[in-house]
Design a binder for these strands. Structure first.
Lengths: 330, 330
DNA sequence: TTGAAAGCGGTACCAG
DNA sequence: CTGGTACCGCTTTCAA
C-alpha cells in the first residue's frame, strides 16, 4: 500500500495525500477528511525509508552503551524521555567494550540510518579520532571524549571520588584502600585521581595499599578484597570504583566473618539499583544517570537543528549514606 | 559523499562503484582495485536508506521486550548472536508493558524501518489481533501469542511450574503457597496452572493458601510473603512466579528471623543472574533465554527468506537446585 | 566489462 | 487549494 495507490483510489494526487498527513491545514476541510478517512480505512502507513531519503533525516538517534548493565540503561531511559518530547525515536546498541562494534554503530549512523549517536563513554577514544570514514553527529554522555569535537554531558568523576574519600576520612579512617575500575579506562582514571587528591590533602599516602584495578564485576571485587584482607594491618575502609566492585568486596568481608560498616567500611560509586537493594544497603556516590541521558538527547537535537552546540554540561554527583560505612573500631 | 561523486572523481559510472562493492567479480581486476582504493581513500559510505528503498529490505530486526530487565536482555543477546551470523542487525526496544508503545514499534517496522519484529511476549495480544494497519513479519519469543499467525520459540511454562512444585513436594512439603506474576498475563497464567496441576496430582489443595498475584518486583514479593507469614499455620514452602518475587519473599522471611531453606523453602522461576548471586543462592527453574533469542532470529530470517516457517519450537526448562529449598523441619 | 536509465516511495516546489 | 514533476541515492536490468 503506497501513497500512489491511496491517491488513485480516491482520485486525487499523491501530493494531496502527503499534505493531508504532513500539513493538513493546507487542504480544504472536505478533502482532508476524505483523505484521512481513506488512509485509516486502508491502513496506509507511509514508508519511512522513502521519507528519510527525501528529507535527509531519519528522526532516529542511536545510543551506544558499553554493556547492557542497568546503570547504562538508565542513561538510555533518560534519552528516551527526551526523544519523546522532541519527536525523535531512540534505539540502544551495546558494544561489550569492543572497539569494532563501536565503529559498527558509528558506521550505521554514518550511513544515514540514524541522525546522530549518543556515546555513553567510548571504548576507544583513539580509534574515534583516527576514524577515516564520515563521523556522524555525536554527543558524549557520562564522560567527555578527549580530543573529539563533540559536546559532552557528564559528571565530575574526580570530585565524586574526592567526596567519597572525604566521607571515609571524616569518619576517622586512616587506613584506606582503593579498588578501582579497569586500567586505561578514562572514567576509572578520573575516579582514581580523586582518591589520590583527597588522600594527599589529608596528608595520607594514597599508595599505602596496593592499587588494584579490576573490571566492573562482583566476582573481581571479591578477589581484590580477599587479597587486601591478607595484608597486615588490613585497611579499615575501602573505596570501590563502582557498586559492583563494592558488593564483591563486601562479600569477601562477610565471608571472613567481619561486619561491614563496623569492622570495615566500604563505599561504592554510581548508586546502581542493587546498591539500595543489597543487604546491608550500600553507601555510594550517586550519578544522575537518567538526567544525563535526558540532557544528552536535548543537546543532540539542538545540534541537529543547528542551535548553538553549547559548552559541556556538568551535572553534580551526591553522596548517599546508607549502612556500609561507619567509624573505625576503637 | 555519494556514489555519483565517487564515480565522477574516478571517471567511471555510478554502476561501476555499486558493482565494485556488491558484486566485485563482475569487474576487471584493474577497475575493481581502482574503485576500492578510491572508496577507501574518500571514506565513502553507501547510503543505507537509499539502498533499503531500492532493495525493499533493511536487514534490520527489531526486538521488542516488556522491560529492560536482565532477563529479557538475555533473549536479546541471543538474537544479536544469530543476527551476526546471518548478516542482519538487531535493535531492542522496550514497551514498559504499555500497549501503545508496543504498537508504536510495530508501526515503525510496518513502515519499513525494519524487516521484522521479534516480540518477547506481548503486552496485549488482543490489540495485536485487532490491528488494522499492516502487520510486519513477527516471531513470538518466550511465549506464543494466542490467535496470532506468528511462529513462536518458547518454553513450556506449565511444565516448568510442575517441576518446581514437584521439587518442593518431593522434599516432603505439604503446606505450599504460590505467589504468582501479574493477573491476566499469559505466562503468569501458565505457571499458575502448572502449580495447580502438580498440587492436585499430589492430592493437595492448590488453594490452601490465598493466591497472591503481584508484579515482578522484589518489593511486591516481599509484601506478599509478609501477609503469608501472618497465617496460621504458615506455609513451609513457597513457589514464586519469578526470581524477583522469590527474592522479595526471602527478604521477608529473613526479616522475621527465620532461615530460608530450613524453616521455609523458596523456589523461583527464570534463573536470572541475581538468582545465583544472591545470598543464599536461589533454587529456581532455568529458562534458556539466550537460546530462545537465538532460535527466534533464525526463525525470523527463515521466514523473511521464504523458507518454511515451521512449527513452534519448544525449548526445555530445567530445575536448578541451590540453597533456598530443603526438607520441612520435623 | 562498462554505461545509461528506470524506479523504489515519498516530499516540496512551481503552476494554475 | 490541488496537481505535475523533479529529485533524494542506490541497484539493476538492458544495451553496447
Amino acid at each position: 500500500m503506497t501513497i500512489k495507490e491511496v491517491a488513485s483510489q480516491l482520485g486525487v494526487s499523491a501530493s494531496t495525500i502527503s499534505r493531508a498527513l504532513a500539513r493538513p491545514e493546507l487542504l480544504s476541510t472536505e478533502t482532508r477528511e476524505r483523505v484521512l478517512e481513506a488512509v485509516d480505512r486502508l491502513g496506509y502507513q507511509p514508508n519511512l525509508v522513502a521519507r528519510a531519503l527525501r528529507l535527509q533525516e531519519t528522526r532516529l538517534i542511536y545510543v551506544v552503551i558499553p554493556t547492557l548493565s542497568p546503570f547504562f540503561l538508565e542513561v538510555f531511559r533518560g534519552v528516551e524521555r527526551g526523544a519523546r518530547e522532541t519527536g525523535y525515536a531512540a534505539l540502544v546498541g551495546h558494544t561489550g567494550r569492543n572497539v569494532q562494534r563501536e565503529q559498527l554503530f558509528l558506521d550505521q549512523v554514518a550511513s544515514y540510518r540514524g541522525d546522530g549517536v549518543i556515546l555513553v563513554t567510548s571504548s576507544d577514544p583513539a580509534a574515534l579520532l583516527a576514524r577515516r570514514k564520515r563521523m556522524p553527529p555525536v554527543v558524549a554522555a557520562l564522560e567527555e571524549i578527549e580530543g573529539l569535537a563533540a559536546p559532552a554531558v557528564r559528571v565530575d568523576h574526580r570530585k565524586g571520588a574526592v567526596d567519597a574519600t572525604n566521607h571515609l576520612l571524616a569518619l576517622g579512617h586512616r587506613r584506606v584502600a582503593y579498588i578501582g575500575g579497569p586500567e586505561g579506562q578514562v572514567i576509572a582514571g578520573h575516579r582514581r585521581e580523586g582518591f589520590h587528591l583527597a588522600m594527599n590533602q589529608a596528608g595520607l599516602d594514597p599508595d599505602g595499599y596496593p592499587y588494584l584495578a579490576v573490571d566492573y564485576a562482583v566476582e573481581l571485587g571479591e578477589q581484590a578484597m580477599e587479597s587486601l584482607l591478607t595484608l597486615h594491618p588490613p585497611p579499615t575502609a575501602v573505596f570501590a570504583g563502582n557498586d559492583e566492585i563494592a558488593i564483591g568486596a563486601i562479600r569477601a568481608i562477610k565471608r571472613v566473618g567481619l561486619q561491614v560498616g563496623r569492622d570495615i567500611s566500604v563505599i561504592g560509586f554510581d548508586d546502581q539499583r542493587l546498591a539500595s537493594l543489597y543487604e546491608p544497603p550500600l553507601t555510594t556516590i550517586r550519578v544522575p544517570t537518567e538526567e544525563l541521558g535526558y540532557r544528552a538527547i536535548l543537546m543532540m537535537v539542538d545540534q541537529l537543528q543547528g542551535r548553538s552546540t553549547e559548552e559541556d554540561i556538568v551535572l553534580p554527583t551526591s553522596l548517599v549514606i546508607r549502612s556500609t560505612t561507619g567509624a573505625p573500631r576503637a
